[in-house]
């Protein structure tokens, strides 16, 4: 902040040039993201089935959501999926990135292999895992030496969320690995070499040099993980249809159902607005972390 106060006047011209760099993206955002979002907020105050003209409803869509146990269940399912998938994913991704950040022979092969699941479309991935998790499918076959009974992965309220998280980890690890990898490439090697000369152990190296330098990347990774966890839809739709008994009926799924299956667009919009506010609050709470640019 002190830097800002001392900023000399001649920098203003550069500031304006800096702003211009953002303009193309901002224009596109304003048109294709901000405008539709504002429309969504507006529609959330209406009764709207998309076939008849909307009818004003005030805050009715919101008040009915607060007392809806199904919406509450959906919020819970979303949190379970997000934490259950992305906490292990981020830890694994960082570990893998550290392992892959070498010039060992054949490392390109490993990088490509680990990235393969990311490349595949979620629909296909979900179908593959649906087959893998089937009652007498390959996973239960692999587990048969240790389990006396096969597990009903997708039709048991306890196991279905676990199954989805396993699939989610498999699908997403490569994504965050690549991002960490690109971050690791950016760390000047002499930093670590200097530390090594000073006798730092590999653990100390990680703890005091690598991780702090990766902080901007970690900010990115956790934020993106939270958002993609909240937005997942295809996996649940294909693998469990939100079941059993709503155990995997995540928010995106209930939003889509409410809008396009139940034809209650206003209600779906209200759900989105609430979700948006929740995420925004979390983001603002991390604002300092997010906006800090003095690394």
């Amino acid at each position: 902040m002190a830097v800002k106060a001392k900023r000399p006047l001649y920098k203003r011209k550069e500031s304006f040039a800096g702003f211009l760099f953002a303009v193309p993206a901002l224009v596109l955002f304003a048109m294709f993201a901000v405008y539709p979002i504002v429309r969504t907020v507006y529609i959330s105050f209406f009764d709207y089935n998309m076939l008849k003209p909307p009818v004003w409803k005030g805050i009715g869509n919101y008040t009915s959501l607060f007392t809806d146990p199904l919406f509450g269940q959906s919020v819970r399912a979303t949190i379970v999926y997000t934490l259950g998938t992305f906490v292990p994913t981020i830890i694994l991704a960082l570990t893998l990135a550290l392992l892959l950040n070498s010039q060992l022979k054949g490392i390109g092969f490993f990088r490509t292999l680990y990235f393969t699941p990311v490349v595949m479309s979620m629909v296909v991935v979900a179908i593959i895992w649906k087959l893998l998790f089937s009652f007498r499918g390959p996973i239960n076959q692999l587990l048969s030496p240790v389990m006396s009974q096969p597990i009903a992965w997708l039709s048991n309220t306890r196991y279905a969320p676990i199954a989805l998280s396993i699939m989610g980890i498999w699908k997403n690890v490569g994504y965050f690995t690549v991002i960490y990898l690109a971050g690791l490439q950016g760390i000047p090697r002499e930093f670590r070499e200097a530390a090594r000369v000073d006798g730092a152990s590999p653990w100390q190296l990680l703890r005091y040099i690598t991780l702090p330098l990766l902080r901007p990347i970690t900010v990115f990774v956790t934020t993106m993980a939270m958002i993609s966890g909240m937005q997942e839809f295809t996996a649940q739709y294909v693998m469990t249809g939100g079941g059993p008994n709503g155990a995997t009926r995540v928010i995106s799924l209930i939003v889509w159902e409410t809008a396009f299956v139940f034809m209650k667009m206003g209600r779906a919009a209200a759900m989105c607005v609430l979700l948006f506010l929740a995420l925004l609050i979390i983001t603002v709470l991390q604002k300092k972390w997010l906006l800090n640019s003095d690394y």
Binding site: A152, S155, T157, G243, P244, N245, G246, E257, V261, F262
Partner: peptide, 20 residues
């Protein structure tokens, strides 16, 4: 007209009883 929501409730009902 509310058939889709009824179907969704039946989905949870059957799963609750038959799966759980």
């Amino acid at each position: 007209p509310a058939w889709a929501e009824i179907s969704s409730a039946i989905q949870r009902m059957v799963e609750k009883s038959i799966m759980n």
